[in-house]
Design a protein around this nucleic acid. Structure first.
Length: 574
RNA sequence: GCACCCGUAGCUCAGCAGGAUAGAGCAUCAGAUUCCUAAUCUGAGGGCCAUGGGUUCGAAUCCCGUCGGGUGCACCA
């Protein structure tokens, strides 16, 4: 239990007592009551707004209530002092012993320091990546992949059951194009000279697929009409693409639990089931869409389509679930897919590129309809990443097939750098990824800065050994003011993890680690001005041992934080 | 025309489950290196949190309008 959680419980007990004493009426809503570190450290270690938010419903004034609460809180052994400030804040200062013992807790819990059960075992399905199976992964997919994966890890750490899922879009027109492109490469593998026409995928990665297909089928389908091979080639080419994609994901350290196929979903009749249910509830009807506002497409004509009443759930327009040729729209299938996911999870999260922002409302409407409002469902939009090389945008053309692949980037800068960097911005803010900057060894680069702190800590252990200092058991009472400051920041880690999990914002971990690293570097550098402030003091094994203990604690937190981000901690820099 | 996202220091961005005097890095200026890795650190200046209202004891944070930027707008995925 984190220190903050513990004090929330303490405060709760105090409020119970005040209720029993008749100072507070029973049944007050305590939800707005918070226990947090104050922004300004001079206000103490913890602050609560309890008196302010409860005074009004209790029919008393904040100061009087605060006094009653303070009186009880002062009785706690962990509290050094409690005071009332401003409009009714209660500020607590904890004893040094309390903080020092938190350091012992950290050492004791190790890799689990920061783990919590706030998720209460609720199952969350996180669907991320879901790149079309028509080619290798490129950098456009990267950020969503990392954010989704880190979020999944974070939720697990916070006590959720997590299903990591990938939706294979293998039923649309683009996989026909893939099949035709693969067939062309197949003919090429059989010795034919080919030219790639406009509209087919030109990428080199299909050469291998063509060769594989040649091994699979010999020349059986070389000159056959499309109708004889299209379905088969589609299926086989998608399989090969998924092997490629899994490999790419593996390079980023990402492994999904479930891969769901859109084609299989349709073959199993899931969209039909969803449609039938929705029709029975008058949520699907046959109708004609209004002409789109703004510029009218050339080929627009009114047609009757089965429409889902997404307007009933806040969308601007009802949405077709089938095309005029009778096949399912992407939305029609996706709707059924989300319904299927909701069968095995309490909550759903989709990680999407921001270019799909326009379709969020309809899928949320569909989930609300099909689960009758029971499943929490969030769509997290991931903004674009601009690739730069020394400040200049990297030119890419998907049509020419020369997009920057994820594998190339991982190869160039490394998995850990890619993952960390992708988490140094809030997901819904655009970001730049500069090949030069992300590997720069300077404090401008948080990836490096955090790793450097960890490397320094690791070096301390080695140094102490080399110096041959015989270390006694650490005596935490030797740690002074500067060390306590570091401990207080370290003790916030569990709170940061909880906050990141609740708001589903994994980037908070990266920012916290940067702050922690900064505090550590500052502490370390005190040793430059004052040699007595160094960690390793050959003539003072007791102090050395205590400071090493603290350093290791900081190192532990950096490792825990990095682990949540899927990044390995470095023990030395090269 | 409509919807969504964004607007915080000169620049890049945190902070937004409402909390006290709005933070960090870069850049600028002034300092620290016989050093446990200075690949670092210390300090200073720099803000009508786009704007106008509203809710609240309290708003950068929540709600509405306006302005500015980005994205997407029929049976593409």
């Amino acid at each position: 239990m984190s220190l903050y959680t513990r004090f929330t419980a303490h405060l709760d007990t105090v409020l119970d007592i005040l209720e029993a004493d008749g100072v507070l009426p029973t049944g007050l809503n305590r939800k707005p009551v918070t226990v947090e570190p104050p922004r300004d450290a001079s206000h103490g270690d913890l602050a609560t707004n309890a008196a302010m938010v409860l005074a009004k419903p209790a029919g008393t004034n904040p100061r009087a209530l605060a006094e009653a609460i303070v009186e009880k809180l002062e009785g706690l052994t962990e509290v050094a002092s409690a005071s009332i400030a401003g409009p009714g804040f209660i500020n607590l200062t904890l004893t040094d012993v309390t903080w020092r013992s938190e350091l012992a807790v950290l050492a004791e819990e190790g890799d689990d320091y920061g783990r919590s059960d706030i998720g209460q075992g609720v199952t969350v399905n996180v669907e991320y990546v879901s790149a079309n199976p028509t080619g290798p992964m490129h950098m456009g997919h990267c950020r969503g992949a990392v954010v989704g994966d880190a979020l999944a890890t974070l939720l697990e750490y916070a006590g959720h059951k997590v299903i990591r899922e990938y939706y294979i879009n293998d039923a649309g027109g683009q996989v026909d194009v893939l099949a035709r492109s693969a067939h062309l490469r197949y003919r090429e593998a059989l010795g034919e000279a080919i030219t790639i026409p406009e509209g087919l995928y030109p990428g080199d990665y299909l050469v291998l697929v063509g060769e594989a297909l040649m091994h699979d089928f010999g020349d059986t389908y070389k000159d056959k009409p499309e109708s004889e091979w299209l379905g088969l080639f589609r299926k086989r080419a998608v399989e090969y693409m998924m092997i490629l994609i899994r490999e790419d994901l593996g390079k980023l350290g990402i492994k999904h639990d479930v891969f769901s196929s859109e084609a299989e979903l349709q073959a199993a009749g899931k969209p039909d089931e969803a449609e039938a249910w929705l029709r029975a509830h008058d949520l699907v009807y046959d109708g004609v869409l209004e002409a789109p506002k703004g510029e009218l497409p050339d080929d627009w004509e009114p047609v009757v389509l089965p429409l889902f009443r997404s307007t009933k759930f806040g969308d601007d327009q009802d949405r077709p679930i089938k095309k005029s040729n009778g096949s399912w729209t992407y939305f029609g299938a996706d709707m059924a897919y989300h319904y299927q996911k909701a069968q095995s999870a309490d909550q759903l999260i989709d990680i999407w590129g921001a270019d799909h922002a326009g379709t969020v409302k309809r899928i949320q409407a569909a989930v609300a309809a099909l689960t009758e409002g029971k499943a929490r469902f969030d769509v997290k939009l991931i903004q674009m990443v601009r690739l730069l090389r020394d400040g200049e945008p990297v030119k890419m053309s998907k049509r020419a097939g020369n997009f920057v692949t994820l594998a190339d980037v991982v190869q160039e800068v490394g998995k850990d750098v890619v993952r960390f960097t992708m988490l140094t911005r809030k997901a819904d803010a655009q970001m730049d990824f500069d090949f030069a900057k992300v590997v720069e060894a300077s404090k401008d680069n948080p990836v490096f800065y955090v790793q450097y702190a960890h490397a320094r800590i690791s070096s301390l252990g080695r140094r102490a050994e080399e110096a041959g200092i015989v270390l006694p058991a650490p005596d935490l009472s030797l740690l002074g003011t500067a060390e306590l400051g570091l401990i207080k920041l370290a003790a916030q880690f569990p709170r940061v993890v909880e906050g990141a999990a609740l708001t589903r914002e994994p980037h908070r971990i990266a920012f916290y680690l940067n702050d922690l690293a900064s505090a550590f570097h500052g502490w370390w550098n005190m040793g430059n001005d004052d040699p007595r402030a160094r960690v390793i003091l050959a003539d003072d094994p007791a102090l050395t041992s205590s400071r090493l203990f603290l350093s290791r604690g900081i190192g532990q937190i950096i490792r825990n934080g990095l682990a949540l981000m899927g990044v390995a901690a470095l023990t030395e820099l090269n």
